[in-house]
Amino acid sequence: MTTLGTAAPLAADRPAGTSADPAPRTPTGTPTAGRRLVAALFLAPTVLGLGIFTFVPILASIGLSFFRWDVITAPEFVGLANFADLVTDPTVRRSFLNTFGFVAVAVVLQLVVALGLAVLVQSRLPGWLRVVFRSVFFFPLILSAASVSLVMAYLFNEDFGAVNAVLRTLGLGDVPWLTTGPGAAAVVVMVYVWQNFGFSFLLFLGGLSSIPKEVDEASAIDGATAGRRFRLVTLPLLSPTLLVASVMAMISALQIFDQPYVLTRGGPGDTTRTAVMVIYESAFQQLQFGRASAIGIVLTCVIVAVTALQFRLSRRYVHYQ
């Protein structure tokens, strides 16, 4: 009972019998036959739907990951062979290393850009300007990642792209963006961060606005410089937001697919192939459903681990006011 909204006003969340009311509040609390029927009927679409399209599939995926199956011939039990592919198959191994590398670079970049801009927007600006900047940085979030990647593929085209045109006028020469491994990886990171930094930005803006002005002003009066105030006052008070923002950014980055699929198809070579791309290719191009499932299970474990880490860290290191 304690975990479910203790301060909630709806009757069902009050511990029965412990309330000050002498009589139990039958109208809303105790499940009568009618209320039980409502509960069953109203929950059915969600519970059955999630059961059929999430619970059963995840169990099926776990089962499938121990088999070799191409839909046409009968499934063959192969033990942990599909998981061994993660280490032994160069493409699968590369895709996981790419994904982790991508997550590390993209998440750090996204958080730094978002936090920097949030601090600037939150600092002494007229209210209307704050609203304008907030809308601008939020805007890319409403676009389709696939369409954005189409546009960016034109912009980063080595010969005709606007990005190289600008670099040429600056005398920086032509950058082989999408035709070399490092160039393509850089484009995927930039396109991803361009579209997603606004999400972390919104979280930071919320976190910053909940820090009382007096705290910052008090330390300013004590003679702390802006840099020291940010490091020693703002950042610790922002740590709950920082933790949540980094975990959410990591979970979303681990699942990257649209941008590399549209921009590079994983190439050149395997340089921008990600874990989800290999799930897609294994299953729907090579008909290796077992291997696709194994990769998916490992990815889920990583995501669950990141989430669990968030809960542990938030208990130990985060400063709550």
Binding site: L4, L43, T46, V47, L50, I52, F53, T54, F55, V56, P57, I58, A60, S61, L64, L254, Q255, F257, V276, I279, Y280, A283, F284, F289, A292, S293, G296, I297, L299, T300, I303, V304, T307
Partner: peptide, 23 residues
């Protein structure tokens, strides 16, 4: 029930796509 519903939020859609495709 509530816990189970919340737990499904941690499962990425890309992981269930193979069985969903079969279904």
């Amino acid at each position: 029930v509530f816990g189970a519903i919340l737990a499904t939020m941690m499962v990425p859609m890309q992981v269930t796509i193979v069985p969903v495709f079969m279904l």
